[in-house]
Amino acid sequence: MNNYKLIVMDMDDTLMNHENEVSEETKNYLIRIQEEGYKVVLASGRPTEGMLPTARLLNLDKNQSYAISYNGGKTVNVATEEVEVNRPVTKENFDLIVDYCRRNEFFVLTYHNGHIIYEGEHEYMNIESELTGLPMKKVDDLKSYIQEDVPKVMGVDYVANIVKALDSLNGYFNEEIDVTTSKPYFLEFMATGVSKGNAITLLCNKLNIELSQVIAFGDSPNDISMLEIVGRSYAMDNASDRVKAVADKVTLSNANNGIPYALKDIL
């Protein structure tokens, strides 16, 4: 008998199919294994508000489980919406990140009161809203409008420009800010030490679960920190080669119910 207790999964391009939905097969399977005693956790770069509808669809609220949002910057109890962990970007660093994005001509956005706050325009400007379902609010000057800490900041641009910036920064903006990506056109800035891997480690400590008892699924560079530390890790077939190289195994794609396909084999 296996000794796994917790299954954690990314959302976009992992749990969600190309229609930005959870398939019926995947949904029904994840609900059933929770009834059998396994705990399911979502871990995403998405804002919390953009995760909770899917978390509730999968009955995470009824099973006293958690959503890890903003790449690990915040962990929330789905049933109560109580914040377990919160690691924001300070206002001072927010201003520095906005300056950097402006210099590089990136479209820049952040999150405040359940809205995506942005300035300027870009061909890709609506993607985050379409993914998360959060409304967008345009402001004249982000630095003037935002006067407090924020959960995450994101620069958006064409893939070649984001790849160039990622290579140049190499995961490091300054000693208080790390950089990653969840989609090839998103450059994501979080507080140093914020990662899905660190968030899962803290959650497992709280739940008295060993990391060796965790199964994780992902597809993007921001998933690597969790895939490296768990007992069994799976990259989706649509994942980048870098992610596949880290994972223990590669399962079917997000369009082909890759999560239940892998879990049926191991559970």
Rank of each mutant, 00 (worst) to 15 (best):
M51D: 00
G231E: 04
Q34K: 09
V40F: 04
E188H: 05
E82R: 11
R32N: 15
R46V: 08
S195Y: 04
S240I: 15
T132E: 08
S65E: 07
K27D: 13
Y172N: 13
E148P: 13
N257Q: 07
T54N: 09
F217I: 06
K244T: 07
M136C: 15
L227W: 03
V40C: 04
N71Y: 07
M226G: 00
Y66W: 10
D12C: 04
N77W: 12
A255G: 12
N254F: 03
Q147T: 13
E25C: 10
Y234D: 01
R46Q: 12
F217W: 03
C101P: 02
F173A: 01
Q213H: 10
L252R: 15
M9L: 13
L166W: 07
T132A: 11
L252C: 15
V139R: 08
N20P: 08
K74P: 04
G197F: 00
V76P: 00
G37V: 11
Y66E: 07
I259E: 00
N222I: 05
E36P: 13
E176C: 10
A67S: 12
G258Y: 03
A55V: 14
T54C: 10
A79W: 12
L134E: 02
P221V: 09
K74G: 03
I200H: 04
D12V: 05
M226W: 02
E130K: 14
I162F: 08
G114N: 10
G37H: 12
N256V: 14
M136K: 15
S129W: 02
E25V: 15
S65W: 02
E105D: 10
D141T: 15
T180I: 04
P53K: 11
I177T: 02
S240C: 13
E176Y: 09
N93W: 02
D167R: 15
E21S: 11
Q64G: 10
N174P: 12
T14I: 03
V78H: 05
L52P: 05
V89L: 08
L58P: 02
A199Y: 00
R232Y: 12
L42R: 03
A165I: 04
G171P: 05
P221W: 05
D157G: 14
I209N: 02
R32K: 15
S253K: 03
T251S: 09
G120T: 07
Y234M: 02
L6H: 06
V22M: 09
P47S: 05
S212M: 10
G231Q: 06
L267M: 10
D167H: 13
L211D: 06
G72W: 03
N77I: 14
D219I: 00
K138E: 14
R87G: 12
G114P: 07
Y66V: 09
I209Y: 07
V108P: 01
E49M: 15
V139C: 10
G171Q: 08
K143F: 09
D237F: 09
L134K: 00
Y185N: 06
I31P: 04
V179L: 01
T192D: 15
V214T: 07
K91Y: 14
N2C: 11
V163D: 12
E24F: 12
N93Q: 11
F186M: 04
H18C: 12
N170M: 15
T26D: 01
T132F: 08
N208Y: 13
V214M: 06
I229D: 05
S212P: 08
K137H: 13
I224R: 02
L187C: 01
Q34S: 11
L166R: 11
M190G: 10
E105S: 14
T132S: 08
S220W: 06
L203R: 00
N174D: 14
R103M: 11
V22K: 02
